[in-house]
Computed example of a mutant assay.
Amino acid sequence: MKTAVTVLQEMMIKMNKVPEYECIAQAGPQHQAMFEYRCKANGVTVTAIARSKKEAKQEAARIMLLQLDKCGLPVPPPFCHGGAPSQTLGPSTSTSSDQASSIGPLSSRSYVALLNELCEEYHLPAVEYELTADTGPPHARHFTISARMGMYERHATSTTKKAARQLAAEQLYTYLKGNLSRVTKDFVEDDALVRAHEKAMDRYVEAREDLAWRPNLGQKIADYHLGLLTHIDSEKHARALEALEACRELEAERALAAVVGALGLSVECYELGGDRGPLSVLCLTPTAPAVTLAARDPSTAAATALRYLRRSLAADPEPPL
């Protein structure tokens, strides 16, 4: 079977024309990059997004063939709409890969976010997404995602899970908006997207708080005991030193809780069993390098952690024992 690029090339040559391809965008990290290709032919311009340049080019050619078929040009199967069943709005519908491709690239509007906001505002059940199919060779995968809310379910297929999820969410959102228009007429999509963006930014800020404690790959092992000093600011440093002085008379566990709180950390305790009796393990989180201490009982482990903190936070820390 000929590829979409080959079929389009042969069609254009018969018309004394040549299709033009151009990679116009690349997004995402290197190991999950997404490429967007633009194709121009016979006065029509389409774009497609995929996980590789080759796949994006093939997808753009396939969308172009579908568009040329709409214009009345003789496009050979299976790159034409002939005999394709029309989509119906029942409790469960499905979108084939060709139908999903004919929609073109996804709009900048996140239908997953819109659907979540719609369900939250009108107290509808949460939407459940599920990967129902994964087909095709490694260089041309096709994923089918189902979006289910109560008895209503929509399926969509695309070359990436994210795109399929958005297509399924778009179908379900469009159906709900159309059939619940009487009660959702005051639902403003732009406001809903702003709310979704604000929630996403809040989660992003919370996630960024842990970045300060990511491991320093350039740190020498001999300097591991200085890890706290390289990850906390001067204000936390000063508060921790004050807490150490104020809690000298307190029991080890209470004093440790006060100092760790001043540093913005938390304490995790574990009890491990063994042939020689239980062992108390104490972890300070998040830290980089990880700070884990052990002793025969929680009180001794807390005292050991306090000694470590005193030496680490000292202006001129002593070398570790």
Rank of each mutant, 00 (worst) to 15 (best):
E198I: 15
E55C: 06
T159W: 14
L284Y: 06
A243K: 09
R165V: 03
T300Y: 00
L284D: 05
F143H: 08
S92A: 13
L131G: 02
K162Y: 09
L180T: 02
S234M: 06
A41Y: 02
P278V: 09
E59V: 06
G90C: 09
E189K: 12
L250F: 10
H142D: 04
G83F: 15
V112M: 05
A41N: 03
V18Q: 14
P278D: 15
H31S: 08
P74M: 11
L226E: 01
S146N: 11
A50E: 08
H225Y: 13
Q58T: 05
P320L: 01
L244S: 05
R38L: 01
E55P: 02
P215T: 08
L228K: 01
T45Q: 14
A196T: 01
A212Y: 03
G28Q: 05
L167T: 00
E153T: 07
A100I: 03
A25Y: 06
R51D: 12
V127W: 14
L293I: 10
L250R: 06
R254C: 11
C80N: 14
P137K: 06
E251D: 14
G136D: 12
A133I: 04
H139T: 04
D98F: 14
S146H: 09
T304C: 09
F79R: 15
T47H: 07
L180H: 09
R154G: 04
K57C: 08
S97Y: 15
L282T: 08
C247M: 10
K199F: 12
G136T: 02
L176T: 00
R62W: 12
Y122F: 14
A303E: 07
P319Y: 00
T287M: 14
I103G: 12
R109M: 13
K70V: 06
P317D: 11
C39M: 03
S96A: 02
K54Y: 07
T95A: 13
A238P: 00
R109N: 06
F79Y: 15
D202N: 13
R296P: 03
S92M: 12
K236R: 11
L8G: 08
C119M: 10
L250C: 04
E209M: 09
K177F: 07
L309H: 04
E55Q: 10
P138Y: 00
S101N: 14
L321R: 10
K161W: 01
D191C: 12
T135Y: 07
Q99T: 03
R307E: 14
R195S: 07
S158D: 04
E128S: 11
A302M: 02
Q32H: 12
Q26L: 11
E242T: 05
C269V: 10
S52D: 14
L180D: 00
P91T: 10
L66H: 07
P138I: 04
V18G: 04
S312A: 15
D202Q: 13
A113C: 08
A156F: 06
P29H: 05
A246W: 03
V259D: 13
R276N: 08
C23D: 04
E209C: 12
A288W: 08
A240T: 07
N116I: 01
A50M: 04
L114H: 11
Y204I: 00
S110Q: 05
H231Q: 15
L279M: 13
